[in-house]
Amino acid sequence: MKRWIGMLLGVLALSFSAATFAAADIEINTPGVTALKQSLRARFQDLRPYMDSGAVGLTADGLLTVRDASSVPLAARQALNGLIAAQNGDRNALYKEIARANGHPEWEGEIRSIFAQRWIQRARPGWWVQSGGGWVQK
Protein backbone atom coordinates (compact mmCIF):
# COMPACT_ATOMS: atom_id res chain seq x y z
CA MET A 1 0.00 0.00 0.00
CA LYS A 2 2.73 2.40 1.01
CA ARG A 3 4.59 1.58 -2.15
CA TRP A 4 1.59 2.70 -4.12
CA ILE A 5 1.51 5.93 -2.21
CA GLY A 6 5.17 6.41 -3.01
CA MET A 7 4.57 5.85 -6.69
CA LEU A 8 1.55 8.08 -6.61
CA LEU A 9 3.65 10.80 -5.05
CA GLY A 10 6.23 10.29 -7.76
CA VAL A 11 3.67 10.52 -10.52
CA LEU A 12 2.18 13.56 -8.84
CA ALA A 13 5.54 15.26 -8.66
CA LEU A 14 6.07 14.44 -12.30
CA SER A 15 2.75 15.71 -13.49
CA PHE A 16 3.09 18.78 -11.31
CA SER A 17 6.39 19.77 -12.78
CA ALA A 18 5.18 19.01 -16.27
CA ALA A 19 2.09 21.13 -15.72
CA THR A 20 4.10 23.95 -14.21
CA PHE A 21 6.79 24.23 -16.79
CA ALA A 22 5.23 23.03 -20.01
CA ALA A 23 3.92 26.52 -20.54
CA ALA A 24 7.33 28.04 -19.80
CA ASP A 25 8.70 30.34 -22.44
CA ILE A 26 12.20 30.56 -23.82
CA GLU A 27 13.56 34.08 -23.59
CA ILE A 28 15.45 35.14 -26.71
CA ASN A 29 15.08 38.91 -26.57
CA THR A 30 18.36 39.59 -24.84
CA PRO A 31 21.21 41.79 -26.06
CA GLY A 32 23.46 38.74 -26.31
CA VAL A 33 21.07 36.79 -28.50
CA THR A 34 20.32 39.88 -30.59
CA ALA A 35 24.02 40.57 -31.18
CA LEU A 36 24.67 36.95 -32.14
CA LYS A 37 21.64 36.86 -34.42
CA GLN A 38 22.86 39.93 -36.29
CA SER A 39 26.35 38.55 -36.60
CA LEU A 40 25.01 35.19 -37.84
CA ARG A 41 22.73 36.90 -40.33
CA ALA A 42 25.48 39.12 -41.72
CA ARG A 43 27.85 36.20 -42.19
CA PHE A 44 25.10 34.05 -43.69
CA GLN A 45 25.10 36.42 -46.68
CA ASP A 46 28.71 35.43 -47.36
CA LEU A 47 28.13 31.75 -46.68
CA ARG A 48 24.93 31.35 -48.62
CA PRO A 49 26.48 30.81 -52.10
CA TYR A 50 28.57 27.99 -50.62
CA MET A 51 25.50 26.41 -49.02
CA ASP A 52 23.59 26.70 -52.29
CA SER A 53 26.42 25.10 -54.25
CA GLY A 54 26.82 22.26 -51.75
CA ALA A 55 30.37 23.22 -50.76
CA VAL A 56 29.11 23.69 -47.20
CA GLY A 57 26.67 21.41 -45.41
CA LEU A 58 24.75 21.45 -42.12
CA THR A 59 25.99 19.03 -39.48
CA ALA A 60 23.88 16.91 -37.15
CA ASP A 61 25.23 18.82 -34.13
CA GLY A 62 23.96 22.23 -35.14
CA LEU A 63 27.06 23.53 -36.95
CA LEU A 64 28.39 23.94 -40.48
CA THR A 65 31.22 22.11 -42.19
CA VAL A 66 32.95 21.86 -45.55
CA ARG A 67 31.26 19.08 -47.52
CA ASP A 68 32.88 19.41 -50.93
CA ALA A 69 35.11 22.36 -51.60
CA SER A 70 36.01 21.26 -55.15
CA SER A 71 33.80 23.93 -56.71
CA VAL A 72 35.39 26.71 -54.64
CA PRO A 73 38.51 28.43 -56.06
CA LEU A 74 41.59 27.38 -54.10
CA ALA A 75 42.30 30.92 -52.99
CA ALA A 76 38.82 31.20 -51.45
CA ARG A 77 38.92 27.94 -49.51
CA GLN A 78 40.92 29.33 -46.62
CA ALA A 79 38.53 32.25 -46.26
CA LEU A 80 35.65 29.78 -46.40
CA ASN A 81 37.24 27.86 -43.55
CA GLY A 82 37.49 31.08 -41.58
CA LEU A 83 33.85 31.93 -42.29
CA ILE A 84 32.72 28.52 -41.12
CA ALA A 85 34.86 28.70 -37.99
CA ALA A 86 33.44 32.13 -37.15
CA GLN A 87 29.87 31.08 -37.86
CA ASN A 88 30.29 27.97 -35.73
CA GLY A 89 31.78 30.09 -32.96
CA ASP A 90 28.70 32.30 -33.02
CA ARG A 91 26.36 29.32 -33.18
CA ASN A 92 28.02 27.74 -30.14
CA ALA A 93 27.83 31.07 -28.33
CA LEU A 94 24.14 31.36 -29.27
CA TYR A 95 23.25 27.99 -27.74
CA LYS A 96 25.21 28.89 -24.62
CA GLU A 97 23.72 32.37 -24.37
CA ILE A 98 20.10 31.17 -24.72
CA ALA A 99 20.71 28.64 -21.95
CA ARG A 100 22.32 31.34 -19.78
CA ALA A 101 19.65 33.96 -20.48
CA ASN A 102 16.99 31.50 -19.35
CA GLY A 103 18.82 30.82 -16.12
CA HIS A 104 19.75 27.25 -17.03
CA PRO A 105 23.31 27.01 -18.38
CA GLU A 106 22.91 23.21 -18.26
CA TRP A 107 20.32 23.41 -21.06
CA GLU A 108 23.03 24.22 -23.61
CA GLY A 109 23.15 20.67 -24.94
CA GLU A 110 19.38 20.39 -25.29
CA ILE A 111 19.15 23.76 -26.99
CA ARG A 112 21.92 22.76 -29.37
CA SER A 113 20.11 19.55 -30.34
CA ILE A 114 16.80 21.40 -30.86
CA PHE A 115 18.61 23.91 -33.08
CA ALA A 116 20.42 21.13 -34.93
CA GLN A 117 17.08 19.54 -35.81
CA ARG A 118 15.48 22.85 -36.77
CA TRP A 119 18.37 24.10 -38.92
CA ILE A 120 18.20 20.82 -40.84
CA GLN A 121 14.40 20.76 -40.95
CA ARG A 122 14.27 24.29 -42.34
CA ALA A 123 17.24 24.01 -44.70
CA ARG A 124 16.38 25.26 -48.17
CA PRO A 125 15.98 22.92 -51.12
CA GLY A 126 19.36 22.08 -52.60
CA TRP A 127 21.30 22.42 -49.34
CA TRP A 128 23.14 19.43 -47.95
CA VAL A 129 22.49 18.17 -44.44
CA GLN A 130 24.07 15.42 -42.36
CA SER A 131 21.74 12.54 -41.67
CA GLY A 132 22.64 9.20 -40.12
CA GLY A 133 26.35 9.80 -40.73
CA GLY A 134 25.95 10.61 -44.42
CA TRP A 135 25.06 13.62 -46.55
CA VAL A 136 21.55 14.13 -47.88
CA GLN A 137 20.45 16.87 -50.23
CA LYS A 138 17.24 18.66 -49.31
Binding site: V66, R67, A69, S70, L74, R77
Partner: peptide, 11 residues
Protein backbone atom coordinates in the same frame (compact mmCIF):
# COMPACT_ATOMS: atom_id res chain seq x y z
CA UNK B 1 45.50 17.53 -57.65
CA UNK B 2 42.70 17.24 -55.14
CA UNK B 3 41.22 14.89 -52.59
CA UNK B 4 37.51 14.07 -52.52
CA UNK B 5 36.50 16.91 -50.17
CA UNK B 6 38.78 19.46 -51.82
CA UNK B 7 40.60 20.17 -48.57
CA UNK B 8 44.00 19.14 -49.92
CA UNK B 9 44.32 20.46 -53.41
CA UNK B 10 46.63 22.31 -55.77
CA UNK B 11 46.23 24.04 -59.09
Amino acid sequence: FSDAAGLHAAD
